[in-house]
């Protein structure tokens, strides 16, 4: 546990040593503001809630999260520091978890940066703050799921660009499986059981539940297991390919 925290602290500080952190947070805040107030029409809705705000999060994360996670392992491999890290007395799971938690905490901070939006909504009307908290929780867990995917793809390659593209594609597939047009098309080519199975892995539908205020154990468990699964995959990949 101590080792995990030490690695997490180093990784976290690394974001702030370069402009990455600031660029990410500014873009995240600008885009989430733009989508919410402009495209989402928070003002026109006349309804004091943050549906419009949360609706865009999956699509924001689709590009921003891979940008954050792409360097996690690809950079260690490119610069050779992976050899240093893996010959220190830490286990692979400790290292993977430490780095993952650092990026996850970072997205948490970016999310906290949107609290002014929440305050605005409270100022404009009388929202159901329980729903909003559920939305934040859902958004945070969904970011965790995307990050775990990004961490695993980052472990596949030395090249951050490849890591980015791979994780956007993977994340996209977990989003598309929740879109009605895609599911209708899948219905025509696959048996019902397969379609239902695919649909149950959709980040969108699990997140939608939560952003509408339904904190259900199964959605949290879903994102939790996605994180665990992809970090496990991350360990397998790194163990097999760390020296290549």
């Amino acid at each position: 546990m101590k080792h995990t925290i030490t690695i997490m602290k180093r990784e976290f500080a690394g974001y702030f040593a370069t402009p990455v952190a600031y660029v990410f947070i500014v873009i995240f805040l600008l885009l989430s503001g733009f989508f919410t107030f402009d495209l989402g029409g928070l003002y026109e809705n006349r309804q004091a809630d943050m549906q419009a705000f949360f609706r865009w999060h999956p699509w924001l994360y689709l590009f921003l999260v891979p940008a954050l996670s792409m360097r996690l392992w690809a950079e260690e491999r490119r610069s050779g520091t992976i050899e240093l890290l893996m010959t220190l007395p830490v286990t692979l799971p400790q290292a993977i978890l430490g780095k993952f938690l650092a990026t996850w905490a970072f997205t948490g901070i970016a999310l906290l940066g949107t609290i002014p939006t929440w305050i605005t909504v409270n100022y404009l009307g009388d929202p159901d703050n329980g729903t909003i908290i559920a939305g934040y929780l859902g958004s945070f867990f969904m970011a965790g799921g995307f990050l775990a995917i990004g961490s695993a793809t980052s472990g596949l390659t030395k090249n951050q660009v490849i890591a980015f593209v791979l994780s956007v594609v993977l994340c996209l597939s977990f989003l598309l499986t929740g879109l009605p047009p895609v599911m209708e098309w899948l219905d025509t080519v696959l048996p019902k059981l397969a379609v239902d199975t695919i649909a149950s892995f959709s980040f969108l539908s699990h997140f939608d539940d939560m952003s509408r205020g339904l904190i259900e154990g199964r959605d949290l468990v879903f994102f939790g297991s996605m994180i665990a699964f992809f970090l496990f995959l991350n360990a397998l990949v790194l163990d097999a390919r760390k020296a290549h």
Binding site: R10, G14, A17, T18, S79, G80, T81, E83, L84, T87
Partner: peptide
């Protein structure tokens, strides 16, 4: 000390 002495460049 690995070959090439790798270390985190931005630290």
């Amino acid at each position: 000390l690995p070959e090439g002495a790798p270390a985190y460049p931005d630290m």
